[in-house]
Structure formats: C-alpha cells, structure tokens
Design a protein around this nucleic acid. Structure first.
Length: 409
RNA sequence: GUGGGUGUAGCUCAGUGGUUAGAGCACCAGGUUGUGGCCCUGGGGGCCGCGGGUUCAAUCCCCGUCACUCACCCCA
C-alpha cells in the first residue's frame, strides 16, 4: 500500500461512525439543555500557551507534545488538550465574565498508542467561567453524568476529590514520602521532586502500600476549599448522584485547584478506564494573563466512549429510510427526474447510474438501508406510474408517477 | 521512551524449506429474459509487510527495519 495513515491516527467508518454520530448528537442535545454554547478554537496554538497552562512538570508538556517550528520560526503545537486554549480564547475575545462553553474536536499527544489511546483523539468538553459556587461544580458533574447516560453508557462510576490543599500540605507530604523513600518505585522517586502529589495515584502495589499512610489531601484542605468541597458533595447527594471519594484522583494537569472528578468504566479493562474527567481551576485564567476569574470544566474522550458503546452492543442499527430507484437502463433519464422530485420533497433518494440488472439494483437498495424501492420498467412507463416496493414487508403497489414523491413523504 | 506478541485475499485466519498458496465472510455474476434478504453454482482478487542473509531452492530459517497490537509510564 502506497499511503497509510499516520501512527496513532484512525479512520472512523462503519460501526464506529454510527457510534460517533450517536455520541455527538446526544452530547450536543444535553449541552444545549444545560445552556452551554459552542466555541471553536484552532487546532494549533503557541507552544508556550500549554507550557504555562498545563504546567512545565507534567508528562504532557515534558514528552507528549506534537510541537514544531513553522516557516516563520514560530514554536507551534498541535493542542494536547483544549482547556488552556479555551481560556486563551476567553481572554483574547473578552467574553462575558460568566460564560458556559463547550467544544469538540481533535487533540494530539505523542505517545505510544494502545487500546483506547491514540495520538489523535477526539474530545467533547465543557468549561464554565465566572462562577465559583459549589452549585457550578455540581452542575458540571451532573452535566457530565447526563451526557454519559444519554449516550447510552450503562455502567460507570464517579470518583471525587479536592485539590484545594492548604499551604503546608506539600511539605508535609514530601517529608512523609521521604520517610518511606526506600519502598517507592523509580518513577515515584522522580515524582517526589517535581509533583509529589502524583505519587498518590501510582498503581505499583509497593508504592500503594507505602503511600497508604500518607497525609490525605482531603484532611489538609484550606478552610474555604473544605467548605466548598462539602457543598459539592451535599448537592450531589441531594440530587441522588452516586459518587465515591477517592484521594488518589490527582489529575495529570497542574491547573486544578479545587474539586476534581473522574467518571470511569470497567468495560474497557483496568487501563484506559477514564471516560470523562475534569475539575475546578480557579487560577488558570489569571495565570494566562486574564482577570482573576474562577472556572471549572471537563473533557470526555469520544474514542473511548464509542468503544464502550460497541462493547455494550448499544450502537443502534441504521434505520431503513428513503427510496432507491430501480429502473430499466432505457429509462435512466426518467429515473434521474424522479430522483430530483424525491429530493425536492426532502426524501432521501439514490440510484445507481451504472447500468445494472434489476437484481443488482435491488441488492444495492437493500444494503444501502433504503425503506422503499421505486421501480421504473416497461409497464410503469407505459402507464405513467412507478411501482413502490416496501423493502421491509416486501409489499408493492403502483402509484401515478407525478404523485409518487408526495406519497412517500 | 521500555518490554512482549503479530505481520499471508477487502476482513477473520489456516498452511508448507521444493510444482499453479488455501478456507470462511465480504464483493461480482448466474440460477429467476422486471424484484433484495435465504439457498445453490461459478468468478475476480495475494511483490505471503519491506530490505538483506543462509540455501540448489525461503511465505516458512536468521538478522535488520517498518507497521500493527498488548502492557509499562501517563492519560481522554
């Protein structure tokens, strides 16, 4: 094969594209019910936006960026996530301080691809600016839950944590981790230097054991952070949203400052199980040069969600709709005319222009999921009619040519 | 970036150091001179991933490379 798709990218076809359509359609409808409006930002941004936005010490910035220099010598990056970009757009366009936005589109991370993880992957996300009440956090979480539900995900759970650590927490944690240094894995020792909190979500059993007695961030929240977190939990409880507190939810990006959450599923195996995740980031707008505006949001991975729907077998089968015209080759122009009449009525209609046997044309009508086959042969032309065959029941009746399109409407 | 597995038809996969490399599904045609799905018959399709080596002879053995895949790391 002469040309192949790039590593870690995919072509979405067939059953996949059906799942995607289902997801995008459901998500948009829920987002609109919640009053969020679409924002589209460029796929490319300045490299420095993400270095500052996501955090210099994160893996994304350290080793996963798709960056390059353009012909003008600018340092460019294909966005690895959208939050920093949406914040940039929010500032640059001086959007209303209170803005509820959503986006969808491709993100890029230079990683080794594996199940449920790609170099180009698609996210749908929501970001809410200018509201620091626990109600907004609860809303964002419920929005995420409703999207997963309406897409048809049957089993998922919600994990919650807060990263509103008080001033002394980092030192406290570091000194504890130093005391158990001997039983930490190599990568945790590195994390100890640059992002000690991420030691808490290491999956290595030894590290887990060692970190089990670590001071919990939820015991060391700022007073405001603790009150806010309690508020979120209360709201979720009274809305009957089930969740589990999980102190190991620390997120891979540095900008989170408050309640964080992950919706996970077991359906894709123990890895790559996060479907939708996000949290509060109250200082990002300011640190990217905007006003001191609080914000919270989430992103969901369409690729993974589509995979879940396929595993569950809940990708709905294509519905039979529209009409396929089956005709004797002599009457191709007449068939062409009929096509236009159908389309003018808004009816999905198609035909094969290459001369083919009736049998082959009917097969095409069948595999193309058309509800009706409209037959134009000698008899119909002689009587100025068209035969309408219902492809599901097999029943067939004749109708005057001119009113056929209206009849199917 | 590290480690394992796999590369044969559009897809899923058999197979053998030695003639024209197979199956199922899909596709196309015929069985039905104007009717799909089921059935029957036939047909088209393959640099056996790429490069090198061993050999009289390699799809098969060896080395390299690329790709896919699974896992680690990390994440959606």
């Amino acid at each position: 094969m002469e040309h192949k798709r790039l590593r870690g990218t995919r072509d979405i076809t067939g059953e996949d594209s059906a799942a995607w359509e289902q997801i995008i359609k459901s998500a948009r409808s829920i987002l609109s019910v919640y009053g969020y409006s679409l924002i589209i930002t460029p796929v490319m941004e300045e490299l420095s936006l993400f270095c500052r936005g996501i955090g210099e010490a994160t893996d994304i910035v350290l080793k996963e960026m798709y960056d390059f220099e353009d012909k003008g010598g600018r340092r460019i990056v294909l966005r690895p996530e959208a939050t920093a970009a949406v914040v940039r757009a929010y500032i640059e366009n001086t959007l209303p301080e209170k803005s509820d936005l959503f986006y969808m589109g491709p993100m890029f991370r230079y990683e080794r691809p594996q199940k449920g993880r790609y170099r180009e992957f698609f996210q749908i996300g929501a970001e809410s600016f200018g509201d620091n009440t626990p109600h907004k956090d609860a809303e964002i979480i419920m929005l995420g839950r409703d999207i997963l539900k309406s897409c048809g995900v049957k089993e998922f759970s919600l994990k919650l944590n807060s990263l509103a650590a008080s001033a002394g927490y980092r030192e406290k944690l570091v000194s504890f981790l130093n005391s158990v240094k001997g039983s930490l894995c190599e990568s945790c020792l590195k994390k100890l230097e640059r992002a000690p909190i991420r030691v808490l979500d290491c999956k290595n059993p030894e590290c887990k054991k060692a970190a089990a007695a670590a001071p919990l961030i939820t015991d060391n929240l700022t007073p405001e952070g603790a009150a806010h977190f309690d508020g979120v939990k209360k709201l979720l409880k009274s809305a009957s949203v089930e969740f589990m507190e999980d102190p190991s939810i620390v997120r891979g990006l540095d900008y989170y400052t408050g309640a964080v959450f992950e919706f996970t599923t077991e359906l894709l195996g123990p890895q790559q199980n996060t479907l939708l995740a996000g949290g509060r980031y109250d200082s990002l707008v300011n640190s990217l040069g905007g006003k001191d505006v609080p914000a919270t949001g989430f992103a969901l991975g369409i690729d993974r969600l589509a995979e879940v729907l396929k595993v569950q077998g809940s990708v709905s089968a294509p519905q039979k709709t529209g009409a396929f015209i089956v005709y004797d080759a002599k009457y191709r122009d007449r068939a062409f005319e009929l096509l236009q009449a159908l389309r003018a009525e808004g009816i999905k209609a198609s035909a094969s222009f290459e001369p083919k046997s009736f049998k082959a044309q009917f097969r095409e009508a069948d595999s193309g999921n058309f509800k009706f086959a409209l037959v134009l042969g000698d008899n119909e032309i002689e009587n100025n009619t068209v035969s309408i065959k219902d492809m599901e029941t097999g029943g067939q009746q004749e109708s005057p040519f001119d009113s056929a399109a209206k009849k199917l409407k």
